[in-house]
């Protein structure tokens, strides 16, 4: 997957195109190079700065799949349990409700006042469907602990 990284000519288009790189010390080219050399630090918060806007990947003159590579770096971090608690919370919400952003009482009232169903016709309403989502998560090794 990372073979293509060897064709990088270090032009810096990726770093210059990054919306996060403008506000924090996040250097896309450096990250991808470190990954290529096997020198990546999975504890470095920088791997979570990517908004997945795809600018770097679309503009790369060597057609390196940079955004996809960053996602794979994060996957390695996840496997080693190196994730942000906020992100783990989102996984827990999906496990418990089927939704990364679950409904609340205030929104139920708002839905009703708009003439929408109080509970949307999603896993919020269909328990059996939520059960399948949970099975898939459990099979994938995620437990809500």
């Amino acid at each position: 997957m990372l073979n293509s990284i060897h064709s990088c000519m270090k032009c810096g288009t990726c770093t210059g195109s990054c919306p996060s790189g403008r506000v924090v010390s996040f250097r896309t080219r450096q990250l991808v190079e470190e990954h290529c050399l096997g020198e990546i630090d999975l504890d470095d918060i920088a791997i979570w700065y990517c908004t997945t806007c795809y600018n770097c990947m679309e503009r790369c003159p060597r057609n390196i799949d940079i955004t996809d590579d960053i996602l794979r770096i994060r996957e390695e971090a996840y496997k080693q349990g190196k994730v942000l608690p906020q992100h783990k919370d989102i996984m827990s919400y999906i496990y418990r409700t089927g939704h990364a952003v679950p409904i609340n009482e205030e929104i139920k009232d708002l839905r009703e006042s708009l003439g929408l169903s109080r509970i949307p016709p999603t896993t919020h309403k269909f328990e059996e469907a939520l059960g399948i989502v949970r099975l898939l998560l459990e099979e994938g090794g995620f437990n809500d602990k």
Partner: peptide, 22 residues
């Protein structure tokens, strides 16, 4: 037409970062 029982897509930022297969 409503998709009864649909869930989170799932969230590309978190889920695709954690485990692409899942």
């Amino acid at each position: 037409y409503d998709m009864d029982g649909a869930s989170c897509c799932p969230a590309p930022g978190v889920m695709k970062s954690f485990d692409k297969n899942l």
